[in-house]
Structure formats: structure tokens, C-alpha cells
Simulated assay, not measured.
Amino acid sequence: MQVMECAEGLCRARGVRLTDQRKAVLRMLCLSDKPLTAYELLERMRGVVKNPAPPTVYRALDFLLEQGLVHKLESLHAYVGCAHPDHPHASQFLICDACGEVAEVEDLRVAESLKAAGKAIGFRAKRPVVEVLGTCAQCSAKRHE
């Protein structure tokens, strides 16, 4: 899996450890066809890791977030693997509220616009993530059939 190789290389270069549990969480997020909550990850880990506990999952998620390998979708209280972890970026997410599909978009114009708007009022964003809820093309087509 290309994302895992990239993640391992990034962690090695940064001098941080991508432990087996962290790898397991990242792999599950990258292989999932939908965002996963911490408790969904915990359930999936039961077959992979001996006696997984919520703090273990949350620590792994915190590490992966810090390293830019996953994103937290605030509106869903769930996580997704990062589509391009090789560089820092502000992401925008298009979330289908019908099927749950999530598309990660990296549009610099959106990021710059938000940065300028914040600067104008003295606001500094910690984690500039934009989530747009709507209907994906596939679900829209189904509604019009």
C-alpha cells in the first residue's frame, strides 16, 4: 500500500515511531470506504491487536493527526486517511450525507481565502479544515432516476 510506505518514510525522516498499533489504525482508515469513529476502529482492532482499549486508539489517532497522516471530520466525529500526507496542507472535504462518501480536496484558493478572512479580523486558525455536506454525483443520479 503506497500510503503506508509514504507514512513509514515520513515518520522515519521525522524521527518518530510508527508503531504496529499506529500502523493498524492508519491501515484501517486507509482501507475503509467510509470515515470511521474511534469506537469503530476499536471494534476493528479487536481482531488485530490483543486487548485494545479506547486510550490506545485515541493515542494512535492523536499521533496520526499530529503527523498529518489522517484527518478528523468534526461534523461526523470520525477519521479518514489523508489522501496526500507527503506535504502539509489545508483540506476541504465533500461529504455525501446520503451514502457517507468523503472526497478530500486541496484547493489553495479556498485555504488562502479563509486565511485572509481570518487575518482581517485577527483570527489564527489552528486546523483549517472545511467540511461541505451535500450529495455526491452517484446519489444525485439515483434521486433523478
Rank of each mutant, 00 (worst) to 15 (best):
H77S: 15
K34A: 14
R46H: 10
L69W: 01
G81D: 03
R109E: 04
S32L: 09
L36Q: 15
G9T: 01
P88E: 04
R12C: 06
A60N: 03
D107R: 08
H87Q: 11
C136W: 05
Y39E: 11
L114Y: 05
G100V: 01
M28R: 15
G68N: 01
E40S: 05
A38H: 13
E40Q: 14
R109Y: 03
V57R: 00
T19S: 15
V49Q: 15
A137H: 14
D33Q: 14
R14F: 13
E66A: 07
G122T: 06
V25A: 13
G68I: 00
V129Q: 13
V102C: 10
L29R: 15
N51L: 05
D86H: 07
E66M: 06
V25H: 14
A137G: 11
A111F: 08
G9C: 02
F123D: 00
C139A: 10
K115I: 02
R59N: 01
R124V: 14
G68A: 02
G122M: 08
G47N: 12
Q21Y: 12
Q2C: 05
D97G: 07
P88C: 04
V105R: 11
P55N: 12
L18E: 10
R12D: 04
G47W: 13
L114K: 10
E66N: 05
R109Q: 02
Q2I: 01
P35D: 10
E43F: 09
T19I: 10
L65S: 15
C99M: 02
P85E: 10
A13K: 07
S32A: 09
G100D: 02
C139E: 00
K119I: 06
L108Q: 14
P55C: 11
A111D: 08
Q138A: 12
Y79H: 04
A53N: 09
G81A: 05
L108Y: 14
D62P: 03
K119A: 08
R12Y: 06
D62H: 02
V70N: 02
C82F: 02
A7S: 03
R22C: 11
A141H: 11
L36N: 14
H77C: 13
L108C: 08
L10I: 03
E5H: 11
L61P: 01
E74N: 14
A141M: 09
G68T: 00
Q138H: 14
D86E: 15
D20N: 15
A141R: 14
H87P: 08
V48E: 04
V3I: 13
L10P: 00
L64R: 04
G15R: 00
T135P: 04
C11L: 09
Y58F: 02
D107N: 13
G81P: 05
P54H: 02
A103F: 00
A141N: 07
M45P: 03
S32N: 08
R143V: 07
R17E: 15
L73K: 12
K34L: 09
A117P: 01
L73P: 11
R59Y: 04
A111N: 09
R46G: 06
V102N: 13
R143H: 09
C30E: 11
A141Q: 09
F93C: 02
A141K: 10
Y39L: 05
K34R: 15
L61F: 09
L42P: 06
L108T: 12
A137Q: 13
H84E: 02
C82T: 02
L29S: 14
K142F: 15
C96W: 01
P88G: 07
A13W: 07
D97H: 10
A90V: 05
